[in-house]
Design a binder for these strands. Sequence first.
DNA 1: CCAAAAGTGTTCACGGTACACCCATGC
DNA 2: GCATGGGTGTACCGTGAACACTTTTGG
Lengths: 229, 229
Amino acid sequence: MIQQNIKIAVDAIVFGYSNNTLNVLLIKQKYGVLENQWALVGGFVKDNEGLQDAVVRELKEEAGIDVDYLEQLYTFGDDVKRDPRFHVVSVAYFALVNNSVFTLIADTDAADARWFPVNNLPDLAFDHKAIIDLSIKRLQSKLSYQPIGFDLLSASFLFSELENLYCTILEKEIDRRNFRKKVLNFGFVEETNKFAPQKSGRPAKLFKFNHKKYRKLVEDGFVFEIKFA
Amino acid sequence: MIQQNIKIAVDAIVFGYSNNTLNVLLIKQKYGVLENQWALVGGFVKDNEGLQDAVVRELKEEAGIDVDYLEQLYTFGDDVKRDPRFHVVSVAYFALVNNSVFTLIADTDAADARWFPVNNLPDLAFDHKAIIDLSIKRLQSKLSYQPIGFDLLSASFLFSELENLYCTILEKEIDRRNFRKKVLNFGFVEETNKFAPQKSGRPAKLFKFNHKKYRKLVEDGFVFEIKFA
DNA sequence: CCAAAAGTGTTCACGGTACACCCATGC
DNA sequence: GCATGGGTGTACCGTGAACACTTTTGG
C-alpha cells in the first residue's frame, strides 16, 4: 500500500442574494485551529465518505443548511503550503441558496455563521479569498448560460428582482424591456396570478420558474443563453 | 493531526488528432496492479508535490511527453469504491498535444503507450471510461468558446484540416465558406506564404495561429466563439 | 481533359439593440 | 395630484445561414 501524507478536504462557497446584494456564507469556528478566523464552510473528508456527501455534511454541521444548487468548482492543490500545518488538497464546491434559506442561517454547535457581501469580505483563512474570487467568476459566467439565477430567488419572485440580480452580479446595465421580452420568450418563466404590493408604486406580478418546462425544452435541444450588450 | 486513509491520485486524459480522428492516449503498465489493463496516464501524488506537477511528472514518466494544453477537468471521489483496493480520490486533467507530439509517443520504462481512436476504445481500468466520456464533452464545448483546436494541429496547418477537426469532434457538417469567413475575420489566423502539395488537387496555403494577436484581442475585450447551425 | 480539393460572394431571415410613454397604486 | 416603480411595442441593423461555380494542380 502506498505511503502518502496528504489530506483531502472539501470547502463550500455558498452564495445568497438579498437586497440587491450578493453574499457569501462564512463561518468562524468555535474551537480548533481556525478559532477567531473567518473561513469557508468545509472540513476534512471522512474515510469511506464521498466528496459531495462530505460537503453536504459540513454544510449541515457548520451552518445548519441544505443548499439549492451544488456543483464542484475546482480542486486546489498546486500550492503544497496552502495550509501551513500540512499538505492539504481541497475540493471546492460552488453552492447557491434561495432567499428563504438566506434568512435561516444560524449559529450551530460548531461555528458562528454569517453572510458577508462579496464586496466587503473580512480577512479570510488560507487561500479562501482566492477561492471566492474564482467562484464569483464562475457564477458570473454560469448566469449567462444556465438558469441558476432562479436558485438565488424565492420560489416566486418579481421580474424586477430577477433583473436586478443579473445587473448586480454581472455589473451591467440591462434594458428592462428587452430583458423581459427575452426571458418570457423562453417559455419557462410563468406569471402567477398573485401580486406583491410595493412600498410605493404599482403592485407587481409574481413570477415563477417552471422546472419541468425547462427540462423538457432542454431535452428538445433548447440551449439557455442570455447576453447583454 | 487528522487521521484519514484516503489517497490522492491524478489522471490525464490526453487528446491527439490525426488523420481526421480524435485519439486518446492510454497506457498499459509493465508491472503493478494494472498489468495487462489499459488505463489513463496517472498515478499517486507525492508528498509535497503540487497536483499539476504530479500530472506533468506522470506524463513524462509513463509516456515520455510534454503536452501543449493542460487544465483541470474534474475530481472524481463520490464513489468511494471506484478503486476496489482502497479509497482513492482522483483529480483528472484534460490535455492536448499537437500533431508533432502525436507521432512521438513511445513505450517508456514504465509503460506501453498507445493512441486509441475515441470511438474504438479497449476495456479500461476503474472508471476511466466515464472520465474519458466527460472529457470528450468538455472538449466539444471548449472548442466552441476557446481556440484550443489549434493545440491539436501542427504549428502550420491547412484550412481544411482545421475545418475537419471541428467537423469530426463536434460531429457536425460545416459550411466551408462560412467557416473560413468567420475564422479569418477573427484576425488571429494568418496565412503564410507556404503551400502544401496535396495528393491530388490544387495545392493549399498553410495557415498559422498567431498567439500574440489572439492575446491582444482578448485583452481588448474580444470573446472567442464559433457556432454551427 | 478529367478528377480532386482549394478558393471565393451574395442574398435573406432572424435576433439583438435602442429607445419613450402610459399604468396602477399609496400618500 | 404627484411620486414611485410596473408594464408595454416598434424600427433598425448586424450577424448567421443558405447556397454553386471557378481555379489550380497531377495524372
